[in-house]
Write a protein that binds this DNA or RNA. Structure first.
Lengths: 338, 338
DNA sequence: CTTACTTACCAAAGCGTTTTGGGTTATCAT
DNA sequence: ATGATAACCCAAAACGCTTTGGTAAGTAAG
């Protein structure tokens, strides 16, 4: 059932049927209704391929999945994707998933956008210095970054106010009387880590607390790595009375380390973890966490930004969105000792 | 740079250029070479949308991501996807990811296939009785199932020989002298669980061992659930000397339960887990596991099956593939006591 | 020197939409 | 009546490719 057939059935031209369906004003109300009803009844569905060809738009956006081994099954990535598909569905767009090694990622952008297979890209897991963003900007390929890069921010992005989140966390601990606060963070090449780190420093400064560099530890985005970092912290001659972990993968490990050492969170040490501890990790305590909007709303927001971007004519300010995190109290923190 | 422009540049017709590029035989070798070189030099890339419209093929396949909350960030799903994108890339196809609630899944199939947005589907996480498969079969939509359903298997699928895997595991334990073997499994609605369960029963029968129903426990596809199942097993008056867990999510929980109870694997109890224990779970022992081909090769195989399916003309037998699992020895099992 | 076949190429007709640039009929003030 | 305005509708071109059904030139066989 194509447009022509539907038009024939209605004794109308294809033009009119098309315009009726697409909400043009030069078709009478009653004709439009006839068309819509017939389309419904006959189960007409426009062919999106033909549509794309005629309109020069693919109505799809791309996202590339990194093939590097250590990233396999990264739940963060899947969360973005899941939220996105849902949000995009509402604006009638599809998500094309490509995979590429880090090396081949730029080629993939080129192939898909040049080939008009997608209209724009999502760039996930943004780095401080992100060559992908540099490339896409310079190549004039439309994209939306999930997370800003450090330097140039004159492009559309969706991000969380990571710095504010860390400030919240520090303020909470400072309010509980903690003066010795440790910080476990991911590689500062990731911009989210960089921002959270900056927020930590600012929060400490605002609270008038000293930052002890032995208590600033870098961990990877992995449980084991968070475990080791926490062990490293505990084995120091002087221990902080509170610790903030800047991502929940390392957070799970860090918490597990405390359990293994028999250190009780909320009593012996205070812990705040970004994004909370995922369910199904067999850790039972309620961890005080910096939480961000759900992936659901995240996906919707990004879809909105995307349609604005593709529609064109929006000022940059309407193509950027910063979400505020909140502090969710648990029982993993408590008053400072003494 | 479109086909016409390229043709003009070469003083050839668009037809000839197209046919040269697509490997038709009615173009001379030297012309073909000229065309290919010019295309390369001028950076010509065919527009896949136009291509799709002309050929009636989308050169993309779809997979739907379930939106149900408990499935969020399911690593198994991401693994399939990751392998698939890689495999599909080599046959020049793209992966369209849609999301749908369980309720809306069939509609999504309909929308995408009817709209010629994709040529076929991947159906993942197959159930014994799978209405999606019933629907797609009856609707005449091409698809490839990742895992067979129980009853009708007259469609293309890719699957592991789950039954054989369990038989291997049982044989291993029986060989070590175990006579009392417990089994923790996922819901038998999942066909992989059903098959593995059947394999367990068969293996036990072949080894002449009795199956004790209190030692057959169902757990969900979740760590916590595996934890509880193992606790349930340990709290029984009579304990098995060995346990098989049919999926690694529950497996992580089960192993954790043993650790918490101070029961040493390989000495106090023998454990075999399907698919092994993922890295980064903070569990250090090498678990003896039933392992399956990597996601990498899995993705390639599925991509191969897909192109055969879409090419048409292949007998069903060439559209189905069964992969044999292997037993990977670790130190979580040992001789039966006594 | 035909006849028949092969080789190398091409014009034109799709594929199913949207968009452009008119038309035709009614409506209305003059 | 008459020209202008608005309200509806449509034929044809365009999107960039593939495929069909040729044609013309060269070659082989009779």
């Amino acid at each position: 059932m194509d447009l022509k057939a539907l038009a024939a059935h209605l004794n109308l031209s294809a033009t009119t049927v098309s315009r009726a369906l697409n909400g043009y004003s030069d078709v009478s109300a009653k004709t439009r209704q006839r068309v819509v009803e017939a389309a419904q009844a006959l189960g007409y569905q426009p062919n999106p391929v033909a549509r794309s060809l005629a309109m020069g738009r693919a109505n799809a956006i791309g996202i590339v999945y990194p093939l590097e081994a250590d990233d396999v099954a990264d739940p963060r990535f899947l969360q973005v994707v899941s939220g996105l598909t849902e949000g995009l569905m509402e604006v009638n767009m599809d998500l094309l998933l490509a995979s590429a090694t880090h090396k081949g990622e730029l080629d993939t952008y080129d192939r898909l956008v040049h080939g008009r297979r997608v209209d724009a890209f999502i760039v996930a897991r943004t780095l401080c210095q992100d060559e992908r963003i540099d490339y896409l900007q310079q190549a004039g390929v439309p994209f939306l970054a999930y997370g800003r890069s450090a330097d140039c921010q004159a492009y559309p992005w969706f991000d969380f106010d990571n710095e504010a989140g860390s400030v919240l966390a520090v303020a909470r601990l400072a309010g509980l009387g903690h003066r010795h606060i440790g910080y476990i963070h991911a590689s500062l090449h990731y911009n989210f880590a960089h921002q959270r780190h900056a927020g930590f420093l600012r929060g400490m400064a605002e609270a008038g607390l000293p930052v002890a560099s032995p208590w600033l530890l870098q961990a990877g985005l992995a449980r084991r790595s968070g475990y080791q970092a926490m062990i490293g912290l505990l084995d120091q001659p002087q221990r902080p009375s509170a610790v903030i972990v800047d991502n929940n993968l390392a957070g799970v490990g860090a918490v597990r380390a405390l359990l293994d050492r028999g250190i009780v969170m909320g009593r012996d040490i205070s812990v705040i973890v970004y994004d909370g501890i995922p369910p199904d990790t067999l850790l039972t305590q309620h961890i005080t966490s910096v939480v961000q909007p759900t992936q659901h709303s995240t996906g919707k927001h990004m879809a909105t930004l995307m349609s604005r971007l593709l529609a064109g004519g929006h000022p940059l300010s309407e193509l950027q969105m910063l979400c505020q995190p909140e502090l969710q109290a648990g029982d993993s923190d408590g008053p400072a000792p003494g």
